[in-house]
Design a protein around this nucleic acid. Structure first.
Length: 785
DNA sequence: GTACTGAGCCAC
DNA sequence: AAACGTGGCTCAGTAC
């Protein structure tokens, strides 16, 4: 066996070799390192040392560890053609053709399989792949198999790429037992192939593969086409649309592409099954890998016609360009100050316990009293029943005495009692009153409050609020609920998700909402409390910058209303934005006929809320299709008053009114609503039920507004990804907000880039409405305005 | 025991 | 009162 074949053999056995000068260190379990093996290592020591020492830097590619073939063997052992490479055991040499045939016939997996790269052919094959791709730069599919879902913890088993009929599988398992130098060579070679600038990689849910490649090899796929995103745009679905799943199987099925049974279960934790980890890839797995290359490719091809038909070209491009930006953000995570987080939790918890003592004492007291009364009443009826039963037994006894006594008394008695019970349903003995309450149970809370004379249909904040004035306990309950929510949803469960590097990572769903919004979960960082009154307990202060860095934050000011002004073309709203006015205040002035210098925060409407707040409520509510009743509930006036307010509002913004009505009508007629980037959401067209129809109409009105916001933020993330200097990264996005992390000396430049990206992104879609330059907040933590 | 649903509440 | 759009998470309660 040659030195390089030996080295590879050792690697496959998980035996670690390292070279230091003239010393060769072997790290292996005793039972694996057999005597013959040890003998071979000693014989090949010199060759191994050479292979393990770092190769010279000037070489474009290092020579694969291999020695000159023995003089007697110079041709392919199959056909005698020019030597190409050694077989994996180093004992045979093959020409190019037979080397691949060798793999192919060995695995018998698929006629499409043109290459199964083994460790010692890795660099040669990569050079060849590079040439192939450069020669024929048409799109190819890419797909990884991994031992798990966590890019930081799990390993890449295979990297497959190609197109139908030509699939290459790179077996990456040996990579993890290479020394650092050889790992660097593999990375570099992989980067040359996968990181090619203008080459398009197709895949299903490529964010996953992107993150693994970036984490393990520092490779950033440049241009991608994600068939999952494509499918979502074609169908107009979010991520968790139960009716229309967009996983590979379901998607393939929609295009009538046959997919054989899933083999996915084989790969998870493969690295913990050492025998399988070091054995050749089984035929079934290879076939499965090939399928995962060919199927997405076919989906890609079939999607093109639908994209054309629905004019989705632009939004497809928008999403595919945004994918790397979002993947990188997910990979990066955000640094957390856990100590501070815990101290905030403690403060809140202390207060919660104190409140809980008071609340439970009062409520359980009330419950005990009322239940005691109910118990006494129940006990009374129970006793009366028992007395009735005894009286019946007495009568039965009399009847028995008078009878011929053909049955025994117990039998006679039982029959009589059974008869009686039929007309007197049994009453169970009431349980002793217990007065324990779980404040988290809305049913129990409702019952306890009822015992205090507080009758409510629900325990939600809005229902309890009106009683807070007369009943101090209600105020306490409201406080307790806030604290409880905080502790359960934003406490240790989130801290437990922080990585060993102190950073918290979330899973982004690029098209998470049907509107096109990005969502995130595990944890959902888009719902971190933002309205904490006490800055000392603001949880966002725990999202911090590393030493020497700053956090930058900016949002798109009033973006949904600006979009509304744009799409509706409403002259008044456009003018107000152009003048840079406080839109809510100006709306109030127009609606209530106030003079220019009026203070709309001081002017009160019907003794309830300020006029500015009324205007603000309508301004926001209308983007959601709010009705008069909703407005009435929100600002606490009669339905008639609310109706009148809305009338005034829509008279003021007649263009908005017209647009809302016409876009609902159009969506119901043509079957979809669309954003400014061309993102569609489908709607059923023949809905008779007015309430169901109304619900769809509200969604249809909202879609262009919320969805265009999503278009813009994704464009901004893309522009930032393309322009930010190294070490500056976006780390969070929350619908209209972008948060970045930046070395202190680069703050000025990064702020500029952030502003420019946001303005440019708006400009790409909003051509008429005024866009102000965003304010960038700079600090050591995630600030809110 | 696990799986699901509804109430409630956090974000924009 | 479902009737104000898009989401996720937790808990209680129930069904299997």
């Amino acid at each position: 066996m040659t030195a390089s074949a030996l080295l590879h053999h050792l690697q496959e056995l998980n035996i670690q070799l390292s070279a230091a000068g003239e010393r060769l260190t072997i790290d292996a379990p005793r039972d694996v390192l057999t005597a013959p093996l040890r003998q071979q290592i000693v014989e090949q020591k010199q060759g191994l040392l050479e292979l393990l020492s770092p190769p010279a830097e000037k070489e474009a590619y290092p020579q694969q560890p291999q020695e000159t073939p023995a003089a007697s063997v110079e041709a392919c052992s199959q056909c005698g053609a020019e030597i190409y490479a050694y077989s994996d055991d180093g004992l045979n040499i093959f020409c190019k053709r037979h080397r691949y045939m060798q793999s192919h016939t060995q695995c018998q997996a698929s006629p499409s399989l043109t290459r199964v790269t083994q460790a010692r052919f890795f660099l040669q094959d990569l050079v060849e792949l590079f040439n192939e791709i450069s020669d024929r730069p048409e799109p190819r599919t890419l797909d990884l198999e991994t031992t798990g879902l966590d890019a930081h913890r799990d390993k890449i088993v295979t990297i497959a790429l190609g197109s139908p009929g030509r699939v290459s599988v790179l077996d990456m398992r040996p990579y993890y037992s290479l020394n650092a130098e050889w790992q660097a060579h593999w990375k570099r070679a992989l980067g040359e192939v996968l990181g090619q600038k203008d080459f398009l990689w197709i895949g299903h849910n490529l964010k996953f593969d992107w993150i693994f490649l970036a984490t393990h090899f520092g490779i950033h796929l440049q241009r991608v086409y994600d068939t999952m995103l494509g499918e979502q745009l074609i169908l107009g679905t979010g991520l968790h649309d139960a009716g229309t799943p967009v996983n590979l199987q379901a998607t393939a099925a929609r295009y009538r592409i046959p997919v054989s049974k899933e083999q996915r279960l084989w790969f998870p934790n493969l690295d913990q099954r050492s025998k399988e980890w070091s054995a050749p890839l089984p035929v079934e797995q290879l076939a499965y890998i090939v399928q995962d290359i060919e199927v997405p490719y076919q989906i890609f091809q079939q999607q093109q016609a639908k994209i054309k038909a629905q004019s989705l070209d632009h939004v497809i491009q928008l999403e595919n360009q945004a994918l790397p930006a979002i993947a990188e953000m997910e990979l990066r995570g955000v640094l957390i100050d856990t100590e501070r987080w815990r101290s905030i939790l403690q403060q809140k918890y202390d207060r919660q316990l104190e409140l809980e003592r008071d609340i439970t004492a009062t409520l359980e007291g009330a419950l005990r009293d009322s239940r005691q009364k109910a118990y006494e009443k129940d006990m009374d009826t129970y006793k009366r029943y028992q007395n009735g039963l005894r009286e019946e037994e007495r009568l039965l006894m009399q009847a028995y005495q008078a009878s011929t006594k053909q049955k025994t008394w117990p039998a006679f008695r039982q029959e009589g009692v059974n008869r009686w019970v039929e007309s007197h349903p049994p009453i169970r003995k009431p349980a002793l009153p217990k007065a324990k309450i779980n404040l988290s149970s809305s049913a129990q809370l409702q019952a306890a409050l009822s015992a205090l004379g507080i009758r409510i249909h629900s325990t939600q904040e809005a229902a309890l609020e009106p009683f807070a004035g007369n009943y101090p306990i209600v105020g306490q309950i409201l406080q307790w609920k806030k604290l409880q929510k905080f502790r359960s949803a934003f406490g240790e469960n989130i801290l437990a998700m922080i990585g060993p590097d102190g950073r918290l990572r979330t899973d982004y769903g690029q098209i998470g909402a049907v509107s096109g919004r990005i969502i995130c979960r595990n944890p959902n960082l888009q719902q971190m409390p933002a309205r904490e009154k006490n800055e000392g307990e603001n949880i966002r202060t725990c999202f911090i910058a590393p030493p020497g860095y700053r956090i930058l934050k900016a949002d798109l000011s009033n973006i949904e209303l600006r979009i509304l002004a744009e799409v509706s073309g409403d002259a008044t709203m456009l003018r107000l934005f152009a003048e840079g006015k406080d839109l809510h205040a100006e709306t109030a002035k127009l609606m209530f006929g106030l003079p220019e210098n009026a203070d709309t925060k001081k002017q009160v409407y019907k003794g309830q809320v300020s006029m500015r707040d009324v205007a603000k409520t309508i301004n926001f509510g209308l983007a959601y299709g709010m009705g008069a009743q909703g407005l009435a509930n929100r600002i606490g006036v009669s339905a008639d008053a609310a109706k009148e307010l809305m009338g005034t509002y829509f008279a003021t913004y007649s263009g908005v009114s017209r647009w809302l009505r016409s876009s609902a009508r159009q969506a119901m007629k043509q079957g979809y609503a669309v954003t400014l980037a061309g993102r569609r959401r489908p709607f059923p067209t023949n809905i008779a039920d007015p309430s169901i129809r109304g619900s769809f109409e509200r969604s249809a009105k909202n879609h262009p507004i919320q969805g265009t916001n999503a278009d813009i933020i994704k464009r901004a993330l893309t522009l930032l990804y393309e322009t930010l200097p190294e070490k500056v990264h976006t780390i969070l996005t929350v619908h209209d907000e972008i948060v970045m992390e930046c070395p202190e000396p680069l703050v000025e430049a990064a702020s500029r880039l952030l502003k420019d990206a946001m303005i440019q992104a708006c400009r790409d879609y909003l051509k008429i409405v005024h866009i102000p330059e965003p304010d960038v907040l700079v600090g050591t933590y995630w600030q809110k305005d």
